[in-house]
Design a protein around this nucleic acid. Structure first.
Lengths: 303, 303
DNA sequence: CCATCTGGATAACGAGCCGTTATAGAATGG
DNA sequence: CCATTCTATAACGGCTCGTTATCCAGATGG
C-alpha cells in the first residue's frame, strides 16, 4: 500500500517546505509531487498535507510518514550498497572445494591471487574428492568445485553433470609411473604399463584406482594391487620401500617427490584433466568468476 | 532502484524455498515472482537466486536483500499502522485555541466528550481571543479556533478569512446588560441601551468594546467608557460596586454571576455568534472532525 | 524405463502507476 | 495592482508489474 517512493516524497516535502522545492530536490516536476501526495492521501484515506495558501505543511499523519521515510530509505540504501559491494568485489564469500593434490599447489596460489586483488573477498576452502565436491556443488553447499577426470575414462559419471554445469579447464596433469630408484627399469626414459605387469601395485584414491585398472586392462593384464591409500606421500613411501609401483600425477610430484622414487613418463602418455566447476548461475557471481580466473592463472604457472 | 515489493519477494523466496510457494504466500502467480527476480537481477547487475534443478536458493547477494526485507517491511507496516491509528481515531492530536469565556463552559464539556469517546486522541488547549486564534490557524499552529463575532458588526475583518475556512456554528450567545442590583433600572424586565446613555460603561475585550460602541452609536449616544478589562469577573466586580454598567454575554453569566449584579435582556436583542473554525484540509482529519462534533454537541447542551 | 507431476522460464498481453507537458487558479510581495 | 510563485488539474505516454497460456527440465513412482 505505502511504498518507499511515497515516503521519499513526504520526507522531501517536510524537508523542503513546498511541493516545488521537494520536486526539485528529487529531480521530479511539481505536478508529479502533487499527484503523488494525492494518491497517498487516497490510499491512506487521510489528509497528509495542509495547504496553507501558498505554503504547505504536513499534518500529523504526514509527519508520521516523513519520519518513517528515514528508516526505510536508509535500509534500502544499505541493502543496495551491500549488493553493490558484492557485485563490485568489495565484498563476497566463495566456498571452494578442491581435491587434496590440488590444494598443495594451484589452489593456494589462486587464493593468494584473489586475496591480493580483492582483499575483502573471502574464499573458504574445503578438501574433497571430485564426486563429493560435485555433490556439494549441486546441493548448494559449495560455489566452486575443483575436480579432475582421467582421460578417456569414467567421464560417464561426471559428464552428465557437466552439461548443466559451467566447467573451466585448468590444466592437464601428466600421470607418471613411480618406481623405487633401484628398480630394474628405473633408468629407462619411459615405460609402458605392461613392462610392470608382474609388479605389485599401489593404488591411490578410488578414481585413481579405477584409472589404473583401466590402463592395465588396455595393456592386457590385471594388476596386483597390494596397497591402497589416498595419501600420496604414503604411496611414495611404499614405492621407495620397494613394496610396489604406482601411477602418480605429476602435480603431486612437484610438491613432494620422495628421493628414493623415480617417476618415469608412461607410454602411451596418460593424463588427467583438472577443472574448476561451478553452476551457470554462480559463474556470473563476480567473486566466483574472479576466483575461477585466479585458478586459471595459477594453473598456467603450475602447468 | 530497489523497492519494497522486490524485497518482499526475495524474503518470500527465502522463507518458502521456491518461486511457486513464494508466489502463493504473496497472493501472486508463479511467473510474477519469476519476472520480479529477473528484474531485480537486471537492476542490481547481480545473480540473486541460484537455480538448482527444481529447487532454488538465494545467493549471497540475494540473502542480503532478504535480510533487509525484514527491516523495511516492518517499518512500512509500522508507518501504515500509525497512520491508520490516526485515521481511526485510535491516536491523534488536536490543537484547540479558544477564547476565554468559552473555555469555562462549552470547551471543557467538548473535551470531556472527546476524551470519553476516543481516549487516545489528545486535545491540547490554548486560550486566545479570536483574531489571535485565527492567525494561529492560518499559521498552522492550531487546528481548531473557537471564535465569536458580534451580530451585524465587524464581520468585515473575519469574513474574508471565513470564506477559505471551514466554519461551524456552535451557538448564539445573548448579550445582557449588567447593572448593580441597586441601580434604578434593576427591576426592569429589559432595557435598551439609550436608557443608560448617561451611565459610565465598563468595556470588555477589544471586540466587545467595539460592539458596545457600535450598539451605542445605533442608539444615538457615545458611551462614557470608564474602565476596560478582559476579565469578566473584574467587570462584574466593578459593576457591583456601582462604578458603571456593562454588556456581558450570557455564556459568561452562566458560570460566574456576581450576586450584586443583575443582568437584563437588551432591547433590541443583541447576540454574538460562536463558531468553531478550521481549515478545509483539517476539517477532514478525523480527530479534528470528532472534536468539532463534540463542540457542537456541547454547545447544544449549553445553548 | 517410461509416464506423470511439479516447478521454473518465457511470450503475449493488459491495466494501472507514475512520470511528463501545458495550463489554469490562488496567494504573496513589491 | 501587477508580477511572481506556488499548487491543482487535464491529457498523455511509457514502463512496471501483474495476468494467462505454454513449454521445458528434473524428480518420482509404477
Amino acid at each position: 500500500m505505502i511504498d518507499a517512493a511515497g515516503l521519499r516524497v513526504m520526507k522531501a516535502i517536510r524537508d523542503e517546505g513546498s511541493f516545488t522545492a521537494a520536486a526539485a530536490s528529487l529531480g521530479y516536476t511539481q505536478p508529479a509531487v502533487s499527484q503523488m501526495v494525492r494518491r497517498l492521501e487516497q490510499r491512506t484515506g487521510t489528509v497528509l498535507v495542509e495547504r496553507l495558501g501558498r505554503k504547505v505543511r504536513l499534518t500529523e499523519a504526514g509527519e508520521v510518514l516523513a519520519r518513517y521515510a528515514g528508516t526505510v530509505l536508509t535500509a534500502l540504501d544499505a541493502a543496495e550498497e551491500e549488493v553493490a559491494a558484492i557485485a563490485g568485489l568489495r565484498s563476497g564469500r566463495v566456498r571452494l572445494w578442491a581435491f587434496p593434490s590440488s590444494s598443495a599447489t594451484v589452489v593456494p596460489h589462486a587464493l593468494a591471487l584473489v586475496k591480493r586483488r580483492y582483499p575483502d573477498v573471502v574464499v573458504t576452502f574445503n578438501e574433497a574428492e571430485p564426486p563429493e565436491s560435485l555433490a556439494a556443488l549441486r546441493a548448494g553447499e559449495c560455489d566452486i568445485a575443483v575436480a579432475f577426470t582421467y582421460e578417456g575414462l569414467d567421464l560417464g559419471e561426471i559428464q552428465e553433470d557437466l552439461e548443466s554445469l559451467a566447467v573451466t579447464k585448468l590444466l592437464d596433469d601428466e600421470v607418471r609411473l613411480a618406481l623405487p630408484k633401484n628398480h630394474p627399469l628405473a633408468k629407462r626414459k619411459g615405460v609402458s604399463l605392461d613392462d610392470l605387469s608382474d609388479d605389485p601395485w599401489i593404488a591411490g584414491c578410488p578414481k585413481c584406482r579405477g584409472h589404473l585398472l583401466h590402463l592395465a586392462r588396455e595393456a592386457g593384464f590385471a594388476p596386483d594391487v597390494a596397497f591402497e591409500t589416498e595419501d600420496y606421500v604414503a604411496v611414495q613411501g611404499l614405492v621407495a620401500e620397494g613394496l610396489g609401483v604406482a601411477l602418480i600425477p605429476d602435480l603431486i610430484l612437484r610438491t613432494t617427490h620422495h628421493p628414493d622414487v623415480v617417476a618415469l613418463p608412461v607410454e602411451p602418455a596418460s593424463r588427467r584433466e583438472i577443472f574448476a566447476v561451478t553452476t551457470p548461475d554462480l559463474s556470473r557471481v563476480p567473486a566466483v568468476a574472479a576466483t575461477i580466473d585466479a585458478l586459471v592463472e595459477a594453473a598456467k604457472v603450475h602447468g
